Simulated assay, not measured.
Amino acid sequence: VTIASSETDAFINYLQIKEGAIIFSKNLEIKKKLDEPDEEILSMAVQELRSEHRSNNPEVFTNKELSVKSDDFENIVPQIGDKKKLVDLSLKNALYLKREREINKEERKTKKNEVLHILQENLRLNQYPKIIECFDNSNFQGTNPVAAMVRFVDGKPDKKGYRHFNIKTVVGPDDFASMKEIVGRRYKRIMEEEGEYPQLIIVDGGKGQLSSACEALQELGLYGKIPIVGIAKRLEEIYYPDDSLPLLISKKSPALLLIQRIRDEAHRFGITFHRLKRSNSTFVTELESIPGIGKKTADRLLAHFRSFKKIKEATLDELKEVVGEAAAEKIVAHADEKAID
């Protein structure tokens, strides 16, 4: 049994030998833990492979000494002779698997880079769009307006960079003003924190939303420094600022498909947040309908339990710790009445 490894993965080859002939071969790929030694991975793999394939051979030849000894077999790291040649053959198989995975990884990376280069060409961008950020508004009949931003790096979602926004300055359903607010808040914060700007901003919406986003960039002195486009929902057309005609991109272009994927992800992320906020808002309203329970008490419960589901599942004692005995008893009594209804 031999091992070849990279920083993140270990590649194992297992050969079974009987009367000098190879009767079975198997490759394994294992994700490494941080700073996990090859000797430990190999020891674990040997035990699992012997158990899986019911091997009772008294000798196990490896390219590295096992960190865990066993009474069931002797571990040998041969230095010369036929046994060394067998270990070298096994190691060659492990190295071949490692190289094959590295090539596949590079090909996938190259393919992603090709799409981003096509995007750069289609949108006539001066810079390679390594970081792309997309904004989406979400409201239902004007209630609970929220927004979302997703961040893609090298063509892949960077979920640590995703952001939700509660709309603060806009009253009622106003997509244009909401878009201006969230774009302004996002890049004002990056300016203040000296963060990394994207090479492309995508706005989910047509010319109106795009113009509003541009106003926010103008107020920050960023307009013209970061490329920005809008994707109109009805015909999936791409618009530049100050251009009444959409950009002509083939509907089959991988660049357009990437923009649509990023837009769809922003929409999904925003809708999820909006549903959560609507559910919480509905529950706060329900709590406030209980005599003696006000908005502050309802907000305190949500802040502590994080979701209305957990509030409903909370015991009387758990509720008492947050809002006191009297309010807790009222909430439990209300919940019991609802259950009976």
Rank of each mutant, 00 (worst) to 15 (best):
T2A: 08
T8G: 05
T8R: 02
I12Q: 11
N13Y: 06
L15A: 09
Q16D: 03
I17E: 03
I23S: 10
K26R: 11
K26W: 04
P37S: 08
E48L: 09
L49M: 14
R54P: 00
N56W: 10
L66F: 10
S67D: 09
F73H: 07
N75F: 10
G81W: 10
D82A: 13
K85R: 10
L86H: 08
N93F: 14
Y96C: 07
L97R: 06
R99I: 14
T110N: 12
N113L: 10
E121N: 12
Q127T: 15
Y128V: 04
E133A: 02
N137F: 03
N139G: 01
N139R: 07
Q141G: 09
P145F: 07
P145W: 02
V146E: 02
H164L: 12
K168E: 15
T169E: 09
G172M: 12
D175Q: 09
K180N: 11
G184L: 12
R189S: 12
E196A: 08
Y197G: 00
P198G: 00
D204H: 03
G205A: 10
S212M: 12
C214Y: 01
L217T: 00
Q218C: 00
E219M: 08
R234S: 10
L235P: 04
E236K: 11
D242R: 06
S250M: 05
D264M: 01
A266E: 01
T285L: 13
G292W: 04
I293Q: 00
K295F: 13
L302I: 05
I311Y: 07
A314D: 04
L319I: 06
E321D: 15
E321R: 13
E329P: 02
I331M: 09
H334A: 10
I340H: 08
